[in-house]
Simulated assay, not measured.
Amino acid sequence: MLIGYARVSTSGQNTAQQRAELAAAGCSRIFSENISGASRERPELQKMLDHIRAGDIIIVTRLDRLARSTIDLLNIGERIADAGAGLKSMAEPWADTTTPAGKMILTVFAALADFERSLILDRTSSGRAAAKARGVKFGPPPALTPEQIAHARELRETKSVSEVARLLGVHRATIYRALKD
């Protein structure tokens, strides 16, 4: 039996396109979910892995829909193999564990993909460090300006933190942090 698995990462996306491709490929059952691949809790993936039987073939539109790291891909691939099933990717024809060459190639390419991901993370980290060195500030802008903080100090002499926060339109914790600095 051909079994499909579709996944999208954000709530703004949907699996309709993947599901259509998997149905066109002949999948008689399709498991789909809207959850980050980085999440360890993927209920539909778990249902699919529990559902597969010997001789089944899992079809995905792309490998990144199934796994986000080499370890994850290899673990999922091992569970599929332990069930006596195979794995095929529509976008990566070399990723076909129903053949010995496909098993070997999948392992090599998964390692290369993980290596590439590591390089991207290193470049991103280096870029962030360089930006910080140039004085770029990350995160949301401060809730209060220096003038508002000075005003909060004055108000605090006669008013409670809750009253000051209400007057400035911020949470009490913001006032506590601002006055602490």
Rank of each mutant, 00 (worst) to 15 (best):
R68D: 08
A38V: 08
A143C: 03
R40S: 03
R128S: 04
S125M: 10
T70Q: 15
A23Y: 11
I175H: 01
P141T: 13
A111V: 09
V136G: 03
L73K: 04
R42K: 12
D56K: 06
N34V: 14
T174R: 00
H171E: 14
S39V: 06
A67E: 04
K159M: 15
Q46K: 10
I3A: 01
D56F: 03
A131Q: 09
L179T: 08
P43Q: 10
L22S: 05
I35R: 11
E154W: 00
R40T: 13
K103N: 11
D96M: 05
A91Q: 08
Q17F: 05
R40A: 14
R134C: 07
A25W: 04
A16R: 06
E154V: 12
G139A: 10
V164N: 01
E33A: 09
G84S: 00
K137S: 12
S162Q: 10
A111G: 15
C27W: 00
R153Q: 11
E44S: 12
V161T: 14
T99Y: 05
G37W: 01
A83Y: 03
A16L: 06
V108S: 02
D181M: 11
I57T: 15
D82K: 15
E157A: 12
G12A: 05
A111Y: 01
L144Q: 07
I3H: 02
A130V: 01
A38P: 04
A165M: 09
S162F: 04
L2F: 14
Q18T: 09
A152D: 00
G139Y: 11
A54D: 13
S39W: 03
M48C: 09
Q13L: 08
S126D: 13
P93F: 09
R172M: 15
G12M: 06
L49H: 07
R29M: 05
S89V: 03
L121A: 14
K103T: 04
A152Q: 01
A85G: 04
T98E: 02
A133R: 10
E163I: 11
K132A: 11
D56R: 03
R166S: 07
Y5L: 06
G127S: 13
A38S: 09
R172D: 13
R7A: 09
P142S: 14
N14D: 15
A129T: 10
I58N: 00
R62K: 15
I3Q: 02
D122Q: 15
A20M: 09
Y5F: 07
A150K: 03
P146V: 01
R53W: 00
T15P: 01
A133Y: 02
A95F: 14
G86H: 14
S126E: 12
G37K: 05
G102M: 01
R166G: 02
R134M: 09
R68H: 13
L106C: 08
A133D: 14
E78W: 02
A16G: 08
F31W: 10
P100G: 03
K180Y: 10
S32H: 12
I3K: 09
A178R: 08
E33H: 08
T99P: 08
A101W: 03
I105D: 02
R117Y: 06
E163H: 13
L87Y: 06
A83N: 07
L121F: 04
W94T: 07
R172A: 13
D50R: 11
K47A: 14
K180T: 10
D122S: 15
S69D: 11
Y5R: 05
A133C: 05
L22K: 07
S69P: 02
R177Y: 04
A25P: 06
D72Q: 13
